[in-house]
Design a protein around this nucleic acid. Structure first.
Lengths: 215, 215
DNA sequence: TAAGGTTCGTGATAGCTTCTAACTGAACTT
DNA sequence: AAGTTCAGTTAGAAGCTATCACGAACCTTA
């Protein structure tokens, strides 16, 4: 025993229930946001009674942490797959937007308002730098035309976030700009702040992306 | 009666209690975020017992809405005062950052993750366009050097958010860019996503601002 | 096949929350 | 001085997180 790919039935069942809990949690988050997530409600929707869920997650916080981890994992995989299929930075940006629009609350769970005391576990920060690495890889292929700025010098001495990536400072700066600018557009769109303004968010996203790459 | 500037003592007292409730609410939000705001806890800190607060606010939602309104009001006043004292766009941007850092949760209450169903009352959208007007005013003073983009054409036909402001399309685009780019940097900084990355957020903010105005 | 340990799901319970309802007492009005 | 209004109280319903103790189903092992 132990050589099989199929786990013990006990563990299979356990994984399946855990997965269903998370599925219901995502449904609930999509409907009413992460702050309204209720273990009790999930349990009832699954036909079990409240405390049963505590066999699978130590508490609300652990469930949410698992959801955050899955969201990061999903985004990292999506971006990496996009990059692997030959996409450039623009392709990555569009994949990011598509991923975000697919489930706005999932994006906001990662990049939205955090709980003041919360500190992400190491596993999550690891996935986060995986995403950064994908972005950096795509940015090195971009032509560098603008002259070095004072901030380029600063970032050259503070590049631990690049995690050993050999990109030159201008590329680090560019990647950082991609992140913050795309997030600026996306987060406001997802939060509904463009609603009623009239213009098309997709067009503005493209304009911002174009300015980011050619400006 | 009715001619006096001093209100009736009944009403004075009422306003004062409402103000104190909001003060305690801000303290609590600063400590643990808006999702952890508890009417009960506020009441106890004020030496009253739970349900008393319902004399002053119809419920948790109404209190939060009032806080959002006050936050918008504070930001609009801050930016308008900054502009009135002769500041340009860069000055406005720095005032925005200072205002946000002064109470991160206050900024995030406005621009952070919203509850999916929530729709801001008209009074709030009014203040929001007041902020936009201040930004637009400052942006008209900026030199326009870059050629018109396709998005400039689009925004010319969708300018209801400018609320009658006579700025040309390039300026509308510029103001929009200011908003989304500065928000991109600020929201990630306030949410703690720059923590541990190494670089100085203030320097990056300045770099982004410089690129925004001269790039 | 029968015994044993492990694990799942339950109901009960404590303590928290929002919010409603009924009641008391003080203050202002007339 | 009498009557109205309004603040604040306690009691309570309904919901939540989370813990505990118990029974029952399951898997393993002898």
């Amino acid at each position: 025993m132990g050589e099989t790919g199929t786990k013990a039935p006990r563990e299979r069942y356990r994984d399946q229930v855990r997965a269903e809990i998370k599925e219901r949690a995502w449904e609930q988050i999509a409907e009413a946001g992460a702050s309204a997530l209720s273990l009790n409600a999930i349990a009832k929707r699954m036909g079990m009674s409240g405390p049963a869920l505590y066999r699978y997650f130590a508490g609300r916080d652990e469930l949410i942490t698992a959801l955050i981890r899955d969201a990061y994992r999903s985004l990292a995989d999506t971006l990496r797959a996009t990059a692997a299929s030959g996409a450039d930075v623009a392709g990555l940006a569009r994949a990011l937007r598509a991923w975000a629009l697919d489930d706005p609350q999932r994006y906001l769970l990662i990049y939205g308002t955090p709980v003041p005391g919360y500190h992400a576990p190491d596993e999550i920060t690891g996935i986060s730098s995986e995403i950064m690495a994908t972005l950096l890889d795509a940015c090195v292929a971009l032509p560098v035309e603008s002259p070095a700025t004072p901030f380029d010098e600063h970032i050259e001495d503070h590049r631990q976030w690049a995690d050993g990536h050999p990109a030159p400072p201008a590329v680090l700066h560019r990647a950082l700009s991609c992140w913050t600018r795309l997030h600026g557009v996306l987060s406001l769109e997802l939060a509904g702040h463009f609603a009623g303004m009239g213009f098309d968010p997709a067009l503005y996203f493209e304009a911002e992306l174009d300015d980011l790459l050619t400006g």
